[in-house]
Simulated scan of single mutants.
Amino acid sequence: MKKLSLLFSAMLLVIVLAACTESTSSSPENDEEEKSQSEESASDEEKEGKASSEKEETKPPQPYKPIEPDEDAKPLKEKLSEEQLAKMPKVEAHGGERERMIPVGETLVKGAQDKTDGPLKNHRLVAYYGHPNSTNMGILGEMEPDALMDKLKEQTQAYSNADPERPAIPTIELISTVAQRDPGPNGKHYTRTPPEQIDKYAKLAKENDAILMLDVQLGTDSVLHQVKLLEKWLKLPHVHLAIDTEFHVDEGETPGIDLGQVNGAEVQEAVDYLSKLVEENKLPDKIVLVHQFMDEALTNKEAIQPTENIEVALNYDGWGPSATKMSLYRKFVRNEAVQYGGFKIFYDKDEPVLTPEEVLTLDPNPAIINYQ
């Protein structure tokens, strides 16, 4: 009996050890399942990586060509004094602290990023603004198209030479919707530029490897509706959007008499709409330029956010004494901008008309300079 008891105990121990071994080791079925899960996980990562890579590979190239600087053009930093490199212009500081927020040559405002492959990432835009049917609305209406393009290229060349590390792109900023004091047949206080004229300048820009920016003066219409009216042209690879905030008035008010206003949330609707348009139509990344010359003209700026395929620039476009303009650029762009800054120059109204070298001492350097 004693021998049987010992034998039984030994057999029981063997059974327990076998069970423990089985529970702590992987079965062939478990091995296959784990292998399958591992392969599936790796496959998902590979697919995501492949999709991301394919997205980058299939992203269409930008259609513009910047004006190359002259061979003897010196980098911007080599042409400025130590004080200019360290401090913004006195007139821009307007009696305040002069320390630069952004190093000379850089155009992104402090804390901003650019996740796009848009024109502003490595270049600067030099634009001629106006309407072909009006000599009072900018240089665009003062010259025939070919002569305009020749002069625009000369002005653009000056900026490429002033900062050869950021070659400039010639840009036509065409007013595609003109605000009117009369309500007009649509009752919205605006008139659309004839489509054939927009087509004409779209063709001119394309033939010259330039950019066309369509500017909207809103009247009492909404930003988003105006953008939708331009969809035909915004689907072109070289066409971008600009919004003139001062001409957006409420019902019962009159553009040009009452100061208009745009809420940043309305701008963001346009940014999101254009972003979706770019994605769905596989277009090159685009720009939304927002004009402002007074606090009241653009509110709720914090609502404006660039996307992965839309760059956003806030443009100071007042006219008058250049010292005042430079100090207001600091207020509206340096201290309040979303991503990039722009600066408008009036050939006939500024005192004096700043040179490209003077414009590029601003903090941060304007990514867009438009001339009216």
Results as ranks from 00 to 15, higher is better:
8 F>D: 13
11 M>I: 14
16 V>M: 06
26 S>Q: 12
28 P>M: 10
30 N>F: 13
31 D>A: 13
35 K>G: 10
39 E>V: 10
41 S>Q: 04
48 E>P: 02
49 G>H: 07
53 S>K: 12
53 S>I: 14
62 Q>D: 12
64 Y>L: 06
67 I>K: 04
70 D>Y: 15
71 E>Q: 12
71 E>A: 12
85 L>I: 15
85 L>C: 13
90 K>P: 02
115 K>D: 06
118 G>M: 06
119 P>I: 14
124 R>E: 13
135 T>L: 10
138 G>R: 08
140 L>C: 12
144 E>T: 11
157 Q>C: 07
162 A>D: 08
168 A>Q: 12
168 A>I: 06
186 N>G: 13
195 P>N: 10
197 Q>C: 02
198 I>H: 03
208 N>H: 07
217 Q>R: 01
217 Q>K: 03
219 G>L: 10
224 L>E: 02
228 K>S: 11
233 W>N: 10
233 W>T: 02
238 H>Q: 12
245 T>K: 06
246 E>M: 05
250 D>H: 06
250 D>K: 10
251 E>P: 00
256 G>F: 09
258 D>C: 08
266 E>V: 06
273 Y>P: 03
279 E>C: 01
280 E>R: 06
283 L>E: 00
286 K>C: 02
291 H>Q: 05
294 M>Q: 08
297 A>S: 06
301 K>H: 05
302 E>D: 10
307 T>C: 04
321 P>N: 13
334 R>M: 11
335 N>Y: 03
349 K>G: 09
350 D>E: 11
353 V>S: 05
354 L>D: 12
368 I>M: 03
368 I>G: 04
